[in-house]
Design a protein around this nucleic acid. Structure first.
Lengths: 175, 175
DNA sequence: CTGCAAATGCGACTCATTCTCAATACGGAC
DNA sequence: GTCCGTATTGAGAATGAGTCGCATTTGCAG
């Protein structure tokens, strides 16, 4: 239900190889950081998330991951998401289509801009919320600030064709 | 799984009656605003949400609503939540316990402080995010800023008893 | 008071997510 | 490089929140 922009097939020759290599490195780093074993399935899942840069459904992640690790199962996708989430490396959001998408985010606190049409997950650094307001004794331990809307590409596409081509209809309001 | 602070039994005599009356008025206003019929079940559900001022699970809302409208069913709770949500009067969040809670919020855009322990939903007005940052062509249509932590009461209780008394354990990180 | 559209309750249903468990792969020790 | 204990995996069953269909009831305009 969410668009898939970048190819997740084995890297094409040329400069694309650098990108693929850097993805692989980032995926390995993330897995190593978790302190868990680096298995083919986990690597494939994390690389797929990094490569897409979007919020994707578990089904999509499974599909993408299977290009590199064909035996991967949905249960493993969920288990991997769970571990990444525990490490704070996952952004989860419901898109306009109603689908729940999971996206990979880098380390450290930051905000996100989320395209409701294609699921693009755009990090915003540094954090925009420096000081919590006075809340009558409320002890703030964390905050979440997400911007929802249309990414540059989807905005122009939606402008050209009045009816979006993506499945996600737009209420403009995240769930 | 979420604490219930204020009694939802028929209003006690005295000044509590004013509160109950104002809740009833607010509930009626919200329903009228929706342009839908004001039925006993809907009134009971909305009044329960307003009275609690917290994020509550559909099951809890059903339980609370049944004190005023005993025949209410879970399906009606969900249908009412759906209608309120369509009108932007609902805040939905996953608490630390993993339970999904629904809370009633007033009209107009505002932020929220959410107690991860008891589900308290504290509105923050006015909106703190005046201008969206430049996001390379990203068209922001809305944003969500939530503060998570402990309300004044839960903070002091958690401070007194090192192990919280509420069911919701605290990872300190919202889902 | 009447009639009808809207709303309800019930129970069946869907489907995302989690669990179980035997088989397998990982990675440190040798 | 090989071996072994343990973490991980895949498959399918199980769970449970949320939705749907439909006969019945209710709100409310006339």
């Amino acid at each position: 239900m969410i668009q898939q922009a970048s190819p997740s097939a084995p890297a094409a020759p040329g400069m694309a190889a650098d990108l693929a290599a850097s993805r692989r490195r980032e995926a390995d780093a993330a897995l190593a950081e978790l302190g868990h074993a680096s298995t083919a399935a986990r690597r494939a899942i994390v690389e797929a998330m990094i490569a897409s840069g979007r919020l994707e459904t578990p089904e999509q992640l499974l599909h993408d991951a299977r290009e590199k690790a064909p035996a991967t199962s949905l249960a493993t996708v969920y288990r991997t998401l769970e571990r990444l989430d525990a490490a704070g490396r996952i952004k989860r959001a419901t898109l306009a289509s109603g689908a729940v998408g999971y996206g990979f985010c880098g380390t450290g606190h930051h905000e996100h801009a989320i395209c409701l049409r294609c699921g693009l997950l755009q990090p915003i650094r540094p954090c925009l919320v420096s000081d919590a307001p006075d809340l009558a004794g409320f002890q703030v331990s964390s905050h979440v600030l997400d911007f929802y809307g249309l990414c540059a590409r989807c905005a122009s596409e939606a402008g050209a064709t009045s009816s979006g081509s993506a499945e996600a209809e737009g209420t403009g309001r995240p769930a």
